[in-house]
Design a protein around this nucleic acid. Sequence first.
DNA 1: CCGTCTATTTATAAGCT
DNA 2: TAGCTTATAAATAGACG
Lengths: 226, 226
Amino acid sequence: MSMGRNKLLVKRIESPTTRQVIYSKRKDGIVKKANELSILCDTDVGLIMFSPTGRLTSFASNGRVEDIFLRFINRPDELKGGPISNEEALEDELHKVNRQLREKQEKMSYYNPNVEKIGSLFEAGVHQQFLENAIQHIGQSKAKLVGSRIVQQPNDDVEAAPFCVANDDSYRDESENPDIRRDPSSVEQYGEEICSMGPHLSLNFLKAQKNWNLSGGGQAPKLGIK
Amino acid sequence: MSMGRNKLLVKRIESPTTRQVIYSKRKDGIVKKANELSILCDTDVGLIMFSPTGRLTSFASNGRVEDIFLRFINRPDELKGGPISNEEALEDELHKVNRQLREKQEKMSYYNPNVEKIGSLFEAGVHQQFLENAIQHIGQSKAKLVGSRIVQQPNDDVEAAPFCVANDDSYRDESENPDIRRDPSSVEQYGEEICSMGPHLSLNFLKAQKNWNLSGGGQAPKLGIK
DNA sequence: CCGTCTATTTATAAGCT
DNA sequence: TAGCTTATAAATAGACG
């Protein structure tokens, strides 16, 4: 479907280097096409591409990809009534995300509640329930890892655990000059984000735990606490 | 810059009909290119186009354009060029809240981790530590409420707790499955409804927990928690 | 309005530097 | 690594049904 010396078969390119090379070329080609389309037809076009190595390239016939995207998000509304301003769109987005945040916090409160606010034994029980459940989960995976022993001793074997947090942080290299070419607005960026909400143990996180909100002197959760 | 019978000059096409025709053809071409790029290079590509008449066409190598866009907007560093306006503040807010959301999610993962992802005993230990710690605190408040008894038995009355998980995560899971390359999700017209983050802790949620039951026979949630 | 056909222009895979 | 060149595959403007 492409062009060049050989007929192209649309399948993932295995060679990392070749893949990167092909990406660079085609990326430019698509940006060019997108730009042409927006000019020829006088329309809004938004494009976002991530290179195999995580570099980002975006294009927006207008100013920013955000704007194009917001129009996209608001599509239903646009169809229903008059156009909605970007500001309103942004507000919607903000509210949406805020709601998600609140939900997360509420949920979190069941695991790490503010003790001061617990007003009844029943409530305390509820919190415990969540925590116990969670512990059971961990116990299971732990058992799986060990082979299936010590499943009923959540604390013991943790005491001696060596403090060897693996990984992470370090995504802010910015080692190069992103040569920004100003056609309409094609931008490239670096750095990949790994925002999986999965559990990753990072030193940053552990360090950030100093403000453990609890009545009796919240300790920094050093792994050896008991 | 295009091709065909005549050399193309990149200038807005005046004839409305011709413009529309050209748009249709090129739109398909770009979608095709975007799809090829995503397959050949195994990367994320998001594309949004509005026809001269306002019709929307979108493409996403993955599932939804929204996802690609979120990956875009959640970038730690913004280099997105473009005009600055009143929306700036809102956007900053959006970014900030998004960041908080991610942090919350990460933190949450320590209490309610994805067991499958735990890769070592150490990690399991860390998670347990957090939970144990939290339980201790609950126990304290409980003791305070009762007067000061059974303070050191965070487990006893919960031991028999049924296995009920307040599993969250609503969007994740995606993982790698390059095999299934369905025709790219190129959508025309519109489509909305963005991710409403999964379950939140609300009375409704609690009620839904069939296995809900505290040692003493938890009543239908009358918690005054919120 | 939509698919087809075809002459030309483009895009670009390989090579080469 | 990054361009530059060239032979070819693709994309597509315009015409037609």
